[in-house]
Design a protein around this nucleic acid. Structure first.
Length: 204
DNA sequence: CTACCGATTGACT
DNA sequence: GTCAATCGGTAGA
């Protein structure tokens, strides 16, 4: 498995493009008990200050300051007593990010099972909060550099998904800007979050 | 300091 | 399908 971290240039591009291309990439986490690896099957774009659903829309605070920094760093925030992982995109000063919503677990499943208290592979990293619990991600990793290939990073292996397998829908859970189709996911994947009807491409 | 609130989850009808 | 627990972040007194 090729696990070289994606370069800064990958993240230094329009956030929607990065979100789309992150589907199929590998999320990698170094822990004491070994490497955790999962294939990203669902992600959402948050578009800077013109997007009401983006945490940066109301301006910079201590919580969201990572999003205002350079691309290729993690933005980890707490919500409802969970954590969620984002990859910061676009040049510094453009506070946009991609929320990693779900991965298909590939390696390090025993540690994930232990932290999640669940056996079923589907239940380990389906949803942004579950994913962070399985991968031992918390606010300590906020702002960490995803391009160094230590602690936490994203890699691209030989896997290529066909255009037909990449689906797009409105974002899940947001209370504003419901209409924007900024959620990308692997069509039909069992490892995607949300109700079952959102596991497939919406009919058009 | 108090008073909300949410890019969630899991338990339950 | 519905619903409430959860708690850090934020704003405001």
């Amino acid at each position: 498995m090729e696990l070289t971290a994606l370069p800064r240039a990958f993240y230094d591009r329009p956030v929607v493009r990065v979100a789309r291309e992150l589907i199929g990439c590998l999320l990698v986490r170094e822990t004491i008990e070994g490497l955790l690896v999962g294939r990203i099957v669902e992600a959402e774009a948050y578009l800077s200050q013109r997007d009401a659903a983006c945490h940066a829309a109301a301006g910079q605070t201590r919580r969201n300051s990572s999003m205002f920094g350079p691309p290729g760093h993690a933005y980890v925030y707490a919500i409802h007593a969970r954590y969620c992982l984002n990859a910061v995109t676009e040049p510094a000063g453009t506070p946009s990010a991609v929320l990693i919503r779900a991965v298909e677990p590939l390696a390090g499943l025993s540690g994930m099972r232990q932290r999640r208290g669940r056996e079923a592979v589907c239940e380990l990293a389906r949803g942004p909060g579950r994913l962070c619990e399985a991968f031992a991600i918390d606010r300590q990793l906020d702002g960490s550099d995803l391009t160094r290939g230590t602690d936490l990073w994203i890699a691209q292996d030989g896997y290529r998904l066909s255009r037909r397998d990449l689906a797009r829908s409105p974002r899940i859970g947001v209370t504003s800007a419901h209409d924007l189709p900024l959620r990308f996911f692997l069509d039909g994947s069992r490892f995607v979050s949300g109700p079952r009807k959102l596991h497939r491409r919406p009919v058009r």
